[in-house]
């Protein structure tokens, strides 16, 4: 018999629907992958699972009923860009139903450690981006920022700025995933497959003045006698630099 591969739409609800199917059919898939990433081949038997909010809600409630902490871990781990994250999280969920809430601390099980590390990775990057996001003020008083994080942290970061800049209009674009978060002074919405937002905005002249002021500060607050580039790059990895105003060349 061929190994089964489940395809889904990449959403968290879609993934939970797959989890439901696994429990229902009692067959472990070889892989769970989004239909965009999947390449068809002769050897595998694939099946697309349609996202079903009623079923995903059932799984969600079932997990939350056992442990809210575990639900939190699963949600954050799902945002991680790790390969095969779906199977790791599936294993975690299967074990959760067996060992209940104490699973979180059973670090001798691989998927428990993996999930813990994925959560850590996502939270760490989200925290970094609360600092690394750089807004430019555009015409019509819109603040715009572009980010390209490894993990899918746009929602976490948006929640942060919703509190912080509650009386301003802002847009954050995740250029890697082509998703954009729009905030209208009340709430934010995240829109998929949106890529040319920057071309529609116009930077003000005043903006260039503030950019220069910031760069001036950044240069002058540095102590030359203490130069330590390795330390700088450890804290602010080079891969992020192209969207951080003061270090882009």
């Amino acid at each position: 018999m061929k190994d089964i591969i489940y395809l889904y739409d990449g959403t968290f609800e879609g993934f939970l629907t797959v989890v439901y199917s696994v429990f229902k059919r009692k067959i472990l898939p070889k892989k769970i992958i989004t239909n965009q990433e999947y390449h068809y081949n002769l050897f595998d038997k694939e099946e697309y699972i349609h996202t079903d909010f009623i079923l995903s809600d059932k799984v969600f409630a079932g997990i939350k009923n056992i442990s809210e902490h575990a639900m939190y871990n699963i949600f954050y781990a799902f945002l991680c860009d790790k390969n095969n994250k779906e199977l790791i999280i599936l294993d975690y969920i299967i074990n959760l139903f067996r060992f209940k809430e104490k699973l979180i601390y059973m670090r001798n099980i691989n998927s428990v450690l993996d999930v813990e590390n994925m959560v850590k990775k996502v939270k760490r990057e989200a925290h970094k981006f609360k600092g690394f996001v750089r807004f430019s003020k555009m015409e019509n008083d819109i603040y715009y920022a572009k980010i390209e994080p490894d993990n899918d942290i746009l929602e976490i970061v948006s929640r942060h700025f919703k509190k912080r800049l509650q009386n301003d209009l802002w847009i954050i674009e995740d250029a890697k995933r082509k998703v954009v978060s729009f905030y209208n002074k009340k709430d934010f919405v995240i829109v998929n497959k949106f890529s040319d937002i920057y071309e529609r905005l116009i930077k003000t002249n005043k903006e260039i003045e503030y950019e220069q002021l910031w760069k001036c500060f950044f240069e002058n607050v540095n102590i030359k006698e203490r130069k330590n580039l390795r330390c700088q790059r450890n804290f602010m990895q080079k891969k992020y630099w192209k969207n951080i105003l003061e270090v882009t060349k």
Partner: peptide
């Protein structure tokens, strides 16, 4: 917290940048 104004404090603090000496830039010092 932010009560209908600008900004809030983050309990654990946030680093916004790092200068060439490896020190964090968090506040306009």
């Amino acid at each position: 917290s932010n009560s209908n104004g600008v900004g809030n404090a983050h309990y654990s603090g946030i680093c916004h940048s790092f200068t060439e000496d490896g020190r964090c830039v968090s506040l306009l010092k």
